[in-house]
């Protein structure tokens, strides 16, 4: 066994370690370029913006375990955020938040039904429901145009607030991430996801009822996307009809950089979280270099490609 293969195997077993090294490297470059940038405020800001991205990337990570993807996540998050903000003046904060999660659950459920019972590819299914969701939102907007919108102080506090140097959104995110990391490896549901992604037929023969798993998975994915949208609107404080949509492709990128295989059966949510952080730091880095916008976008794409290519090469067994 050559040294390279050994490193590859080690990294394959501990996929988060090389990502953490990469993250540290990027932060190092940042500190070198702009000494003193590495302070509490900057870290807090980076984490604040990485959290909604990491939550949206959870939808991609968990659906990817089964070989799927959820392209409706961005729209679902936008719908939840917009519906919540427009309902607050009418029904109050608590009910508005609960009501806003209903469309999220519904879109997720429809995705699940399509994937589970009609055998539609998740990419197509979630693309279609995303289109429907966008249309419904535009129609909805015309009915509530008079009521105005409001982001409740609670969500603003959660999204932008900082307590003892820690962003308040960690209050939601830490238990959320802990639950997901526990669920993916320690629960029957989590193992069923990997099983379906590795070999659907073998999973079926071992007693996994795929339709139940798909229904639950995509409904939960909708719910998580909805919550991510609520957090994001608390951070941005300006609801709009395309609020979270720009985060969709980065959420896929975060999951992929984090080592989750888009073909299913492999990956971890811990990797995705680091992936989301890497994307945020990369964004700061490219902004600081004062390049033309085009160069920044170009490098962003190239780096995603290079990181995944190296990753695939190292862990390919």
């Amino acid at each position: 066994m050559s040294a390279l293969a050994r490193i590859g195997r080690f990294l394959g077993d501990n996929p988060v370690i090389p990502l953490l090294i990469l993250l540290a490297l990027l932060v190092g470059v940042l500190e070198f370029m702009r000494p003193g940038i590495l302070n509490e405020r900057w870290i807090g800001n980076t984490v604040k913006f990485a959290i909604p991205l990491a939550m949206l990337a959870a939808c991609q990570t968990f659906t990817m375990y089964t070989g799927g993807i959820d392209l409706s996540a961005g729209v679902v998050a936008t719908v939840s955020a917009f519906v919540m903000a427009t309902l607050v003046p009418v029904v109050g904060t608590g009910p508005a938040i609960l009501l806003a999660l209903i469309p999220a659950l519904l879109i997720g459920l429809v995705n699940g039904i399509g994937v589970a019972f009609a055998n539609v590819h998740p990419l197509i299914m979630s693309l279609g429901t995303g289109l429907i969701g966008t249309g419904c939102l535009q129609v909805y907007q015309r009915f509530v145009i008079a009521t105005g919108s409001e982001v409740p102080p609670f969500l603003t506090w959660l999204g932008t607030g900082v307590t003892w140097g820690f962003p308040n959104s960690l209050l939601i995110f830490v238990p959320f991430a802990a639950l997901l990391i526990y669920a993916q490896s320690r629960t029957g549901f989590g193992r069923a996801l990997y099983a379906i992604g590795s070999n659907k037929e073998a999973a079926r023969l071992s007693g996994v009822r795929a339709w139940q798993v798909y229904l639950l998975l995509y409904t939960l994915s909708g719910l998580v996307a909805g919550i991510a949208g609520l957090l994001y609107v608390g951070l941005i404080r300006a609801p709009s009809l395309s609020l979270v949509n720009p985060l969709l492709l980065p959420s896929v990128a975060a999951a992929v950089i984090g080592g989750t295989s888009i073909f299913g059966g492999r990956g971890s949510y811990a990797g995705t979280i680091v992936g989301a952080l890497i994307l945020r730091v990369l964004d700061t880095l490219l902004t600081l270099m004062r390049m033309p916008e085009g160069m920044r976008v170009l490098l962003f794409g190239l780096i995603i490609l290079v990181v995944t290519a190296i990753y695939v090469r190292l862990t390919d067994r």
């Binding site: 992929v256 962003f300 695939v312």
Partner: peptide, 19 residues
């Protein structure tokens, strides 16, 4: 790169937009 098509073209989406 042997990276899945969807991932490569996702990255290239940014590259060509940058260009």
């Amino acid at each position: 790169t042997k990276v899945p098509d969807i991932v490569v073209t996702l990255a290239m989406l940014y590259v060509w937009e940058g260009v």
